[in-house]
Design a protein around this nucleic acid. Structure first.
Ligand SMILES: [Zn+2]
Ligand SMILES: [Zn+2]
Lengths: 690, 690
DNA sequence: TAATGGGTGCACT
DNA sequence: AAGTGCACCCATT
């Protein structure tokens, strides 16, 4: 009884007792700019059609800026009582008050229902939410802090020698970086600023234990006693790090488990796809700007681009933010690319702590790119073989200029969300990368377009901004990569293409083995085979363990024999131990789906040749060139990359099989989101019944 | 079942299943300096004699210093495996490795038993412990962060006007201070230090949300799997703030409630006394150095005195610590005073954040002293009347030089533990303050000596150091007072003396009313009457609510009618609302004790004239000079105080009634601690049965 | 392994 | 609205 909030007794009235994983609302547009967003249809229109749909709320933009906006009419201006009462406080604060209201919010019966609902939205964007603070009337979410664990690689028992060299080097950098960045206040002045300046700025004090948890991204859920509803607002859509979806995280596993427990079939299906896209290095469909929808202005208004800041210590630009639109040439050529960039540093932290050793931009870029490559998938980090080590030294020594090395380093896993976190639009030329039709709903056979159509429309408006809140330039070798100087163009190009063959002696077992792994991480061909199998036979209903204890599917496959793993992907997964369980789980459904079996098959106890028959290139205990993708999925594109990549030639080879599978995925998602309509200048999710 | 640590299954063996609130151990001294401290008598010697005694563990000192110590033989040198293995890391780190082992530690059956046991030790020292971090194998305690709450005063509904001026002034200071002090790293370099310097120092990163929780004091409880025992070590005995016992804190109430639930009669008795000493402005018996016990060196060795640092930004002294002994003249004259001081700043934090407006030392001293006076008891802060405001402006304007103002400002409540947290020994002359015999166990009738003898001997070795971890000088107006420049001498003198009469017009109702409150807080006469009554009739057994739900005694007295409060003390308490409940609770026992009633009497429902008959000076609804203490308890003493106080003359007037009551208290406590013995050069608590 | 040290999720206040 | 108490973790040695 204690801790129970009586206000929520009223809240849990039968009128609004909808389950939290449905967003099938008919949504009218509140026109009043001074009125809080109110759901006119509070109940669920229908619980039968899509009871567990992935939430796709329309976010209304609330932009307060010193710049007067002509397009304010459909910008959802201010809202919460505190904002209307408080009016405008400081110029500096206004820039932080860009609010995105998630509008169709279910009537959560319990506070704990909010996070899973939000996770459905933000996990696909590569954002792992954690609760920063909560009480009965609010829940504040932020990005999960990244693990430090720069020595995680060393825990590999079979780690070969000769790698400590780079580790030590980076360790020194890490130490310096860590301790050089108290990174407390959001906006700080120099140490010698006058008291007047100090008092005029109201920087926030936050927990500042490490540089890993100072991302400004915030989502706030607030319970209104009047409306007896929760409202959710994205308070700050900026990020201080790369976004990436990590299916191996414990939090995600719990989330997925809850989906299964809740029988949220559609969400399970979507996240299974997401997992496989991640594993297969397929591009994750993320925020794009649909054409002619009228939202472009909002996006551009929201995507406030912070002033480009050199890595020299400077507090001058900390409070000056400007709103820019896409470069006209780029905008016309890439209408589906989000206008996201994180070139500038908002200098929220560490202004007084300049990074003493400032590397040149190119080096930073390449190094961070490599780091992403090394660290995105845990298997890559955990292998710790000379090949990985070679990458590390390559990045540090500038070998990245060698196109051969580039081929290995640049192909970033799609889970790094490079598509979304484009860093410096001014330096990247996306010309000819996207040639698709600007109309997403028109039929197209271009794979990239399929990806765009796969996009959950809710993410259109998210377009997470990746900003650098650390003023230092980090040689950080870990998951949270703060460097804003990522060459997203090259990353993006590699996402769609597999790495070219690398020349290695097959007799060098260790090196060769690692090369296979690396190449596998870079290539997408065999992964696409998996996806094809997966998507063709996938049946989300098999994921439901209704009436079965939660951990059953997990406990069935806790150990795997490496010798059973003929496929290099599986072998690769088995190398990292626990991460192998997931792929077995999923493969079980590849087997079970078509047969409608309710019980997943344990691959430890079934004939693995059965699995092999479904998978091409599966050879038990065989390593070597036969793992090379039989077909290269590559597209013609330019990779200027500051002039470093122009020697690289990549060819587009259409893989019809992959294409078909992606179209299946895309059509599935399109079916889900076909009810998005433009209503009064805003996108609304319209229930078909209405 | 989940979360249960199997290691603790072994731990909870019947051999060592002693309740955690007993410390009646016969304790042998571990002589080996390279061996971990081991209890040779693991079981309790006897559970019958004193089953709930206040713990009095002997702390063994573990001092590592760059200075070689001649008295190392009875200093309990290093101990834990990591220390012996790791040898000496950095000179800077050594100073932080002064460890105090709490040696007779009960065999806690549960991790949650540790905190209450430690609270028994540290609450009397004015230290409110909270858990910083815990898991199944360790619990780390630190000081509870003080509430900021400078707006707490404003919440007073009856707050008069004309006070916002000072509040605004101090608010600006607070803001500046807050935001000028990220205070993250323990040892920081300047922003422009070279990488080499940066990497050579390993400052700690801690949570740095506010300046209120950066006290370095740490107590660590570690569970040893080998020994299957908990060991407790004071890792850092320094404090960044004044120590004060706050009986009004919620944590303390819970602690007290647990004592009652556990039927810990002796602890209840002791803490009841402590509460009344606090309320009555009686000195709290704290750390003293017994003569000829051989521990003086240890104390002096442990009390590492950090270099006196001006408030100018400096990182040079952050890692240089020197061990000093008491000034010889002072040591000979005041052998029972702890050699504690907090003159210097260890510069653990905020080195890069110099306080921009540096006040002169005198102003800071007076202001902070005043602030302690205003804020120690919540009732003083919450009244917020012009008198308090006058104090505030007085301190800012330097009126403190006026001895009349001094009389109002300097008398600090004893709960501020000024005895313990002497700030600058070099500036304070304690000559003639203590004239007692240096042998504590010889009979004495001097009240101060009685206080000394009251001391729990366990606190001898604690002697908390109050150090300034903030380099700035704060105009902080709240509970956590960081300023190290407190004139402890003046404070101490006032603890033993009541304030002289103040000249005020009795017709000014508001001002007069506040003056009464202030004077009451300063005087001890009427309080002593309470204590006399209390101690005479006190029966701790009546505090036990065995078989009664926990909150019963609390729920019985949640509201009081102010008109029922004839006694100014009660009236004063009623003014602040919730704090009045406690005194009613205690008064209930004054009533119930002699009659042996198991049920406390609710004074809201009994004849209050009964209460009044027990209390002198009780006049309902009467304010004025009659509340002046009938007798002044003052002692001759010098107050050099940098030459500011030499105009002040104070006379000693012995109050026999007070003296008797204090002797009763002293004898009671002496009875409890008569079993402290010197064993092998260390104080040991020897069970009488042995 | 045992032990130590520390980050951080999240709800309480 | 935010600080912080506390525990669940992870990392290092
Ligand atoms: Zn983020
Ligand atoms: Zn402290």
């Amino acid at each position: 009884m204690e801790g129970f909030n009586p206000a929520h007794i009223e809240h849990a009235s039968p009128i609004n007792s909808s389950d939290s994983h449905s967003s099938s609302f008919v949504y009218a547009l509140p026109k009043s700019a001074s009125e809080y967003v109110v759901n006119h249809n509070e109940g669920r229109a229908s619980a039968s059609g899509n009871p567990a749909a992935v939430p796709s709320p329309i976010m209304t933009l609330n932009l307060k800026s010193t710049h007067s906006l002509n397009s304010d009419q459909h910008v959802h201006t201010s809202t919460s009582p505190t904002e209307t009462i408080g009016h405008i406080h400081h110029v500096e604060k206004l820039n932080q008050n860009n609010l995105i209201h998630l509008d169709p919010v279910p009537n959560f019966e319990d506070k704990s229902d909010i996070k899973p609902w939000l996770q459905k939205i933000f996990y696909p964007q590569g954002i792992e939410l954690v609760i920063e603070r909560s009480d009965t009337f609010k829940v504040v979410f932020k990005c999960k802090a990244a693990k430090r664990g720069r020595n995680a690689r060393r825990k590999r028992k079979d780690k070969p020698k000769g790698q400590d060299h780079e580790d030590e080097k980076s360790k020194i950098n890490d130490d310096e970086l860590e301790y050089a960045s108290p990174s407390n206040a959001t906006v700080t002045n120099g140490p010698q600023t006058s008291p007047d300046q100090t008092s005029s700025i109201k920087p926030k004090k936050k927990r500042c234990v490490s540089r890993f948890n100072n991302c400004p991204f915030r989502v706030r859920a607030t319970y209104s006693l009047k409306r007896k509803r929760w409202s959710i607002v994205v308070m700050d859509n900026n990020h201080s790090h790369q976004l990436k979806f990590n299916p191996d995280s414990e939090e995600y596993k719990k989330f997925k488990e809850k989906l299964r427990k809740d029988n949220d079939v559609d969400a399970i299906k979507k996240f299974d796809e997401l997992e496989y896209r991640t594993l297969a290095n397929l591009p994750i469909p993320t925020a794009t700007i649909p054409c002619d929808c009228g939202l472009t202005n909002e996006i551009q208004s929201f995507n406030v681009v912070l002033p480009t800041n050199s890595n020299v210590t400077s507090s001058a630009s900390s409070s000056t933010v400007s709103s820019i639109s896409l470069d006209s040439s780029n905008a016309s050529k890439r209408p589906c690319l989000p206008s996201v960039n994180n070139t500038g540093s908002i200098n929220t932290n560490n202004v007084r702590k300049p990074k003493s050793q400032c590397k040149n931009k190119d080096t930073l870029l390449k190094r961070t790119t490599m780091q992403n490559f090394l660290t995105t998938k845990s298997r890559l980090r955990k292998t710790g073989t000379p090949t990985s080590s070679q990458h590390s030294s390559t990045a540090f020594s500038g070998y990245i200029d060698d196109p051969f090395n580039l081929n290995e380093i640049l192909p970033l896993p799609a889970s790094d969300f490079k598509l979304n976190t484009v860093t410096n639009l001014n330096e990247i030329d996306f010309t000819n990368i996207f040639t698709k039709s600007p109309h997403p709903h028109s039929g197209s056979t271009h794979p990239r377009q399929v990806f765009d159509q796969l996009d959950d429309c809710s993410s259109i408006l998210f377009s997470p901004l990746t900003t650098n809140t650390n003023n230092e330039f980090e040689g950080e070798s870990d998951d949270f990569v703060h460097s804003p100087y990522l060459n997203s163009e090259a990353d993006f190009s590699q996402i769609l293409s597999s790495a070219p063959p690398v020349h290695h002696d097959p007799n060098e077992t260790h090196q060769e083995n690692q090369d296979i792994i690396d190449r596998f991480a870079n290539s997408s061909q065999e992964h696409n085979e998996y996806i094809l199998q997966y998507l063709t036979h996938f049946d989300a209903a098999n994921h439901n363990n209704i009436g079965v204890p939660n951990n059953n599917s997990h406990s069935l496959n806790t150990q795997h024999n490496v010798s059973d793993l003929g496929n290099p992907l599986l072998r690769q997964e088995a190398l990292v131990g626990s991460s192998s369980t997931k792929i077995f789980d999923e493969l079980k459904f590849v087997q079970n789906g078509p047969h409608g079996s309710q019980h997943p098959i344990d691959f430890q106890h079934v004939d693995h040749r059965h699995l092999s028959s479904n998978e091409p290139q599966v050879r038990s205990h065989q390593y070597g060139p036969q793992q090379q993708p039989p077909q290269q999925l590559q597209y013609h594109q330019n990779q200027p990359h500051d002039g470093h990549n122009h020697e690289q030639h990549q060819t587009v080879q259409k893989d019809m099989q992959t294409h078909e599978s992606l179209e299946i995925m895309g059509n599935t998602l399109l079916e889900e989101f076909k009810d998005i309509k433009m209503v009064n200048g805003e996108l609304k999710y319209v229930k078909p019944e209405d």
